[in-house]
Each structure stands twice: as C-alpha cells, then as structure tokens.
Amino acid sequence: MNIFRLAGDMTHLASVLVLLLKIHTIKSCAGVSLKTQELYALVFACRYLDIFTNFVSLYNTVMKLIFLGSSFSIVWYMRYHKVVRRSYDKDQDTFRHYFLVLPCLVLALLINEKFTFKEVMWTFSLYLEAVAILPQLVLLQRTRNIDNLTGQYVFLLGAYRGLYILNWIYRYFTEPHFVHWITWISGLVQTLLYADFFYYYYQSWKNNQKLHLPA
C-alpha cells in the first residue's frame, strides 16, 4: 500500500467520523442529505459482498466493517433517532434515489469486467459511488449556509477522491499491468463533481469566512 492510498483511506475515514461526531454529539443532522447517506450504505453493501470470502488483509477487512457500520448507523440516526431525525431537512432533500440507482444498475449490467452477480454488484457500487454525493451537493446549494462540520465532511470526501487518483497514478507506474478503466473513469467523474464545491470552499477559507454557496 502506498502513501496516497493510506492518506486517501484516512481522509475517507475522517469524513465519516466527522459526520458521526456531528450527529452523535450535537444531535443534529442539519444540512446532511439522507439520500446521499442511504446511497453510500447501498454502495458499501454491494461492494463488500466478498467481505467474508475474499481475504485481502486485516486492514481491509477492518476498514470495510467500519465503512459498513458507520454508513448504516448514520442512516439509522437520521431516520429513527428521536432527536436527530427532527433536525433533518426533509423538504430540501428531495433528490430521487432511483434517478441515480437505475442508470448505474443498467450501466453496470452493460459495462463490467465479468458478467457475474458479484462482479456486476461491485461495478454498480463504483458507478453509484461516483454520483452518490449529488443529493448532498444539491442540498448544500439549497441551504447555502453550511456549518463547519458539514463543510469539512464534504471537503474530506473530496480529498479522499483526489488522493485515490494519485494512488492510481502511483500504482500504474509501480505495478505491472495495473490498468482498471472502470475504476478510473468512475473515480475521475466522482472527483470532478467536487471541483465546484472545492472552489467555494477554498475561497471561503482564503477569506477566512463562513462557507456560502451561490444560488
């Protein structure tokens, strides 16, 4: 494992922990999209179908369990916790799941490395992860005033994507035959979706202001 991959995993982990911390300690999920969180839970559930059958390393297994556990507990908090669920901006978070899930499923059935159930589910999870942030970005645009923790959450997720691209570049040059178009293209699309957010995040950081997104 190279330093970019490790740093990417750590920022991914940090993003989830920031979100759980916000929800657990402040008992608020204001500005957080339940749609995005449900999509991430679906992404991890589909991607880690091999969690008990394909052992890569203890690190991988533990991280998979953390991502599965944290994504489902965030969804649980937002849906069922008697205090947290009241802070959920239901009327603003109107993005429809199936607009993202169905095209990703069709694409995974058409474009995959091998037409088996596990492989198609794995490919579907990659496509879905690429666009799962969209409901969150739409919600940020609508509410515009973003608290620090929500801003940091999206920033850390974007950093994780950027670091994974560096990891692929590194692996391409250091490992023979490391060519994975599906992973790369969906990863690149995902990272590009953050570009706009990053621009405003940088501006607010530079001017030492609270993050405001334009309408």
């Binding site: 991959r5 995993d9 991914h12 091999d50 394909n54 890569v56 390393s57 991988n60 991280m63 998979k64 991502f67 794995w122 994974y164 990891n167 490992e175 023979p176 035959h177 490391f178 994975h180 992973t183």
Partner: peptide, 10 residues
C-alpha cells in the same frame, strides 16, 4: 495476481 486487482482497494 489478486493483489494487483482494484478489489484490494476500499
């Protein structure tokens, strides 16, 4: 080799 597959990533 499995180690080179992207499935060793998260």
């Amino acid at each position: 080799c499995y180690k080179e597959s992207p499935k060793d990533e998260l």
